[in-house]
């Protein structure tokens, strides 16, 4: 049976907690680190965090939309 320590529920919960602390930590760093924004939006609090997250959501949705039109079974060209 599969009981590698990395796949246990307790480990996964711990990993999520560490990840959440890391996420919060990087955003809070904006309080002490001085950025040099080139434009305007890039100087907002936690810019990397919200911009990165929003970009990924948009990219995944765009991919889904394109996939809805262009996805075919992977045997498509074999037939």
């Amino acid at each position: 049976m599969d009981d590698h320590w990395l796949t246990r529920d307790s480990t996964i919960r711990l990993l999520w907690i560490v990840f959440a602390i890391a996420l919060a930590g990087t955003v809070l760093m904006d309080l002490v680190v001085h950025h040099h924004p080139y434009f305007g939006l890039d100087g907002t609090f936690g810019f990397g965090a919200w911009f990165g997250f929003a970009s990924c959501v948009l990219l995944i949705l765009a991919a889904k939309a394109l996939g809805w039109m262009l996805k075919r079974p992977d045997t498509y060209y074999d037939s």
């Binding site: 904006d30 990165g52 990924c56 996939g67 075919r72």
Partner: peptide, 25 residues
């Protein structure tokens, strides 16, 4: 920030990223 929050987006949207036996034209 950029990369860790991209990671967060990946794991939150994992259902939308499930692999299927498909190719894309």
């Amino acid at each position: 920030q950029l990369l860790l929050f991209s990671g967060l987006a990946f794991f939150l949207m994992l259902n939308l990223l499930k692999r299927t036996l498909t190719i894309t034209l």
